[in-house]
């Protein structure tokens, strides 16, 4: 085991897979010589060469489409889109091509492409470096969507994604790259080395896709979250002294509805927390699923907390971000309803 932050864990996942599988290639803007603007691919080109770790032209369309072509020809591309906010020029290739290739060719063609992309706010990135677009990928049929909340899961899930024969959108909450973040920007930063999930095996291991994890068992309520919000939700529950069960969804598609619903059936109360805008957010899908499965066990209306339904503003980052206060007041409403 080694201490790793999320960047090092992701780097290690690609390193392990480049080493194990000669078909794995890494491509994206600035990922080669420079090692990525967040240093996630640092050292990989030096180690595996320019034909395995490729700098690309600035074209997200080109990155996604060429990854599809490479995958069809037997490679296993790991593409980086520099910020999730920049993924849209590649959206048609993802929606109409990557997601449906297996279906439309009746399984003769498929493209095992992993698309890694940093998402979320909290780094003063303004409206073009802060988005959480998981819902617009969740709505596409044929693509898996993953968002880890810690280094251990990040590495294990990324290896699973690369080994998966289906395409995977791998969203990396960039505020968590260097340490867990509980939503309070004024607190001194905590490094991953001080967190249990900063302990990461150096070699190959997997964390299964489509498995949620109960981060903390509890009896009073179920908080369903993913990415940065797992840490914020935990801090909010602690501040209230609430014995809440906290579930890290980890995989958005395919959703582990069983783990989520089993918990809500026990606690009778459910709050869903994500950073993305609330309206049409993935929380709506979770809420509908929970309602269908747990209606007779629910003791209160299902709550949802998210970012406001506005673009992510530069100056009001912390007013926008669904921090502990917003989560806590939703929890109080959840607990007082009867």
């Amino acid at each position: 085991m080694a201490k790793m932050n999320m960047i090092q864990a992701l780097n290690s996942a690609m390193d392990v897979m480049l080493d194990r599988d000669p078909g794995v290639v890494v491509l994206g803007e600035d990922v080669g010589y420079f090692g990525g603007v967040f240093r996630t691919t640092d050292g990989l080109q030096r180690k595996y060469g320019e034909h395995r770790v490729l700098d690309t032209p600035i074209s997200e369309l080109g990155i996604v489409a060429s990854a599809i072509g490479m995958a069809v020809n037997g490679l296993r591309p790991v593409a980086e889109i520099q910020f999730a906010d920049y993924i849209y020029p590649g959206y048609d290739q993802i929606v109409s091509e990557l997601a449906r290739l297996r279906y439309r060719s009746a399984g003769e063609f498929y493209a095992p492409v992993t698309i890694r992309t940093p998402c979320g706010g909290g780094i003063r990135g303004g409206q073009t470096h802060s988005q959480s677009p998981e819902a617009i990928f969740a709505h596409i049929c044929g693509i898996k969507v993953v968002m880890p909340s810690n280094p251990y899961d990040a590495k294990g899930l990324l290896i699973s994604a690369i080994e998966d024969d289906d395409p995977v959108i791998f969203l990396e909450p960039k505020r968590l790259y260097n340490g867990p973040f509980d939503g309070d920007p004024d607190k001194p930063a905590v490094p991953w080395s001080a967190h249990a999930r900063g302990e990461v095996p150096e070699g190959h291991y997997t964390v299964p896709i489509s498995k949620a994890e109960i981060v903390r068992a509890g009896r009073d309520a179920t908080i369903i979250a993913y990415g940065t919000m797992v840490h914020v939700a935990e801090a909010a529950a602690n501040a209230l002294g609430l014995d809440a069960e906290i579930i890290d969804v980890r995989t958005i598609v395919p959703l582990d509805a069983e783990t989520l619903c089993e918990s809500v059936k026990r606690t009778g109360r459910c709050l869903i927390v994500h950073e993305a805008t609330r309206f049409g957010g993935f929380g709506a899908e979770i809420a509908a699923t929970v309602q269908e499965e747990c209606f007779w066990q629910l003791e209160a209306p299902i709550g949802r907390v998210g970012g406001w339904d506005t673009p992510y503003p530069h100056a009001f980052e912390w007013e926008y971000f669904p921090g502990q206060k917003r989560v806590a007041s939703a929890l109080e409403a959840l607990m007082s309803a009867s």
Binding site: D85, Y86, T128, H129, H314
Partner: peptide
């Protein structure tokens, strides 16, 4: 991003716009 910010705090620095001066809003994309 202050109280006289033409973008009302919504944009990263440098992403100016100026309708009166015929200069279009700068995107980050």
């Amino acid at each position: 991003s202050n109280t006289r910010d033409m973008c009302k705090g919504r944009q990263l620095p440098v992403m100016y716009h100026w309708r009166q001066g015929n200069i279009f809003s700068i995107s980050g994309n």
